[in-house]
Design a protein around this nucleic acid. Structure first.
Lengths: 214, 214
DNA sequence: CATCAATTGTTCCTATTTTCACAATCTTTG
DNA sequence: CAAAGATTGTGAAAATAGGAACAATTGATG
């Protein structure tokens, strides 16, 4: 396998490709060209072909890509053929929503436990997931857990992450706006709606200004 | 004002800078160097200085940046000195969480109305925000609304966006995984937890493999 | 089964983003 | 108030990402 190093930008697009392909296969589509697929995911067809090419020749010239085949390839590449267990820390409004949602059907990820600092919430269940008291976290063996979803207030994010690390967790999806200080072998990704909305507002206003200057 | 064009990557970092500075000012810090700030936001200090430099000289050599001054500058640049009104479409689990949260205190963005297709939800209030029936959306004049938050199922996202557009909305924060087909003067940003989690899982597994090969 | 149309995989080029390196200049201190 | 130390702003280099162009090759067609 002459699998070159896959660029970060490519890797970050794979989940979108996977999702969109799932939908195509569900709708009975058996083949797709990079340019048709590009229209769906709104990415240039050259970029798509190059992305796939890092993994070898997945398509056929003059034909395009077999959706089923491509989907299976992506499923393996994204480790979606095995169940990924995650825990959730912080059962506030957002945490509750994620528990109720718990990563829809054809996605092989499950929140298996939740933790909260509030004793009133501990012991209860939301969406079939049991809530434990925060103190139990560090005592649990979580070495089979892929990642922790952090939906705690900003002030408590660092502390919560450290407790999760102590239990063996090496990946975080951080919904709080603070940047966590963690060892280099720990991987963190951020989701921040406030930041996204502010960026949106910035671009909206600035594209308007540009137009006025023309 | 020799304000060059601000690179997209820079613009996308501004909200993070703004948030982090808010926290510094709240804690009484009056000055900060680019390298100390870089540690907080986990961005190289050179990148920070260059980001700020697109807006002119905001710092003082040998001193660093005045946090209060910088915060005020960013507030204006991000249009946070005026209230941005947004609407929310789709009052499911996630939509409900966002309504209850409604963009914390020192953030000048408010969800002013919500819409849902379900007649049972219409008329009710969540977090002080009234829910309207979806049909009313296209009939409302929303030209004073900056953006719409889309928290509807994937199948309904395109349709919902079009109705919002008909009422005058030009910006979207799309929580559904589908890419919207909209005119070029409409701006869309995506937030997708499933995608983020899959990317996280990918990077976790692949950094492990890399280490094994050494 | 020869021709035409379609479409990939890939090379080369361009644009964007990040990082390095350092002169300029401000602050602090004795 | 002079010297030492700190830190910015920026030009140039390096790294990363995106896109145009096209040969190679496959599928479809009569």
């Amino acid at each position: 396998m002459a699998t070159q190093r896959v660029p970060q930008a490519t890797a970050e697009r794979l989940p979108l490709y996977y999702r969109s392909l799932q939908r195509l296969v569900d709708n009975g589509k058996t083949r797709i060209s990079s340019s048709d697929f590009g229209k769906i995911v709104q990415i240039d067809s050259t970029t798509i072909r190059k992305d796939f090419s890092y993994f070898g020749a997945l398509g056929r010239k003059g034909y395009g890509y077999n959706t089923q085949h491509l989907l299976e390839f992506l499923r393996k590449t994204l480790y979606q053929d095995e169940l990924s267990k995650v825990i959730l820390i912080g059962v506030g409004h957002l945490g509750t929503a994620l528990l109720n949602h718990n990563f829809e059907r054809n996605n092989n990820t499950r929140i298996v436990r939740a933790y909260d600092i509030n004793p009133e919430k501990a012991g209860k269940e939301i969406g079939g997931t049991k809530i434990h008291l925060m103190d139990e976290l560090a005592k649990t063996d979580n070495s089979d857990i892929t990642a922790a979803i952090l939906t705690v207030p900003a002030e408590r994010a660092q502390e919560a992450a450290e407790q999760a690390m102590a239990s063996g967790i090496r990946g975080f999806l951080n919904f709080s706006p603070v940047r966590l200080t963690l060892p280099p072998d720990v991987y963190v990704r951020h989701v921040d709606m406030t930041v996204e909305l502010q960026a949106l507002i910035y671009f909206l206003n600035h594209s308007m200004e540009e137009k006025q200057n023309k």
